[in-house]
């Protein structure tokens, strides 16, 4: 019986791997051909059991493209208004959860001919005695035209200018080791009404040892639980995160007082393969909107 279970789990994992590869191939190939370079998948997960990973970079254009792979460190951080940004840091990273410095990429520089692809491989060489949890870095895929045309001044004695537009896609890389816990805490919630909407400011703290990756759903309800509007945001909480959600007050026969139903969960993330998801706690909370 246990042998059957093991076989089933193995087959299922292999199936997901095959399915994921097919879908990545599909996503890459099906993207419109005007793009500069395509990078897939959108995250790379490594672990103590699987210390290598890969990305596929494809040049769908009819010109050669110069690619450079670098590493950076950047987590989603928020300001007091709930606006989120990823701040990138290339050096002087003091976060003990940074994987910068012990992740290697092969190859790191290349010229991709038109309509060709290149697989980039990643290898983790973590320090010994790493604490349980998750370690992070960003893979920066930088691309620019392989042959830049040098502008020629129309007048020989003139001054000509050129600003090269360089594109960079930041892909998250996570290395996991030991016992993993995904847990989030709702620290504070403020809701208030403006002329045409209700604003919810939700303050969250990560209490686990991995990034909490899930979905934040907010529903604006009237006193009779009739839905007025709703919004849903993909969430990645590494340490602390404040999110601002604006819920429009649509026209209708709604009864005050309004309330905001907040739900945070790791369920429903269809963009991440199930084997890479770490199931975490769920939070449900209702906040009343004061007039």
């Amino acid at each position: 019986m246990s042998g059957y279970r093991v076989l089933t789990r193995h087959s299922s994992r292999m199936g997901w791997r095959v399915l994921s590869l097919s879908l990545v191939l599909f996503a890459i190939l099906a993207t419109e051909l005007s793009a500069n370079v395509l990078v897939a998948p959108t995250s790379v997960i490594l672990s103590e059991k699987q210390r290598t990973g890969r990305l596929t970079v494809r040049n769908p254009t009819n010109k050669p493209v110069e690619i450079e792979i670098r590493f950076s460190y950047g987590l989603p951080v928020s300001d007091s208004l709930g606006n989120v940004k990823i701040k990138f840091q290339d050096s002087l990273v003091t976060d003990p959860h940074s994987a910068l410095g012990w992740i290697k990429a092969f190859p790191r520089k290349m010229i991709l001919d038109p309509s060709t692809s290149q697989i980039i491989r990643f290898l983790a060489r973590p320090p010994k005695n790493l604490s349980d949890g998750e370690y992070w870095a960003r893979i920066m895929v930088r691309s620019q035209e392989g042959k830049t045309s040098i502008p020629v001044p129309s007048d020989r004695e003139g001054i000509s200018t050129r600003l090269n537009m360089i594109m960079q896609t930041a892909i998250v890389l996570k290395y996991r080791t030991g016992s993993l816990l995904s847990k989030i805490e709702l620290r504070n919630t403020e809701v208030w009404q403006t002329d045409s909407s209700v604003i919810a400011l939700i303050d969250m703290k990560n209490r686990g040892n991995v990034s909490y990756v899930g979905i934040l759903k907010c529903r604006l309800l009237d006193a009779r639980n009739k839905e007025i509007s709703q919004d849903k945001i993909d969430l990645a909480v590494y340490y602390d995160l404040m999110r601002r959600v604006e819920l429009p007050v649509t026209e209708g026969n709604f009864t005050k007082p309004y309330k905001v139903e907040i739900s945070i969960s790791t369920d429903g993330r269809t963009d991440i393969p199930p084997q890479d998801m770490i199931i975490g706690n769920k939070i449900e909370y209702v906040a009343t909107v004061e007039d």
Binding site: L163, I166, Q168, T169, V172, D234, L235, A236
Partner: peptide, 13 residues
């Protein structure tokens, strides 16, 4: 000449 570097990333991952 000079370079302008534009970086984009999903915030929810």
């Amino acid at each position: 000449s000079a370079d302008i570097v534009f970086t984009a990333a999903y915030t929810g991952q």
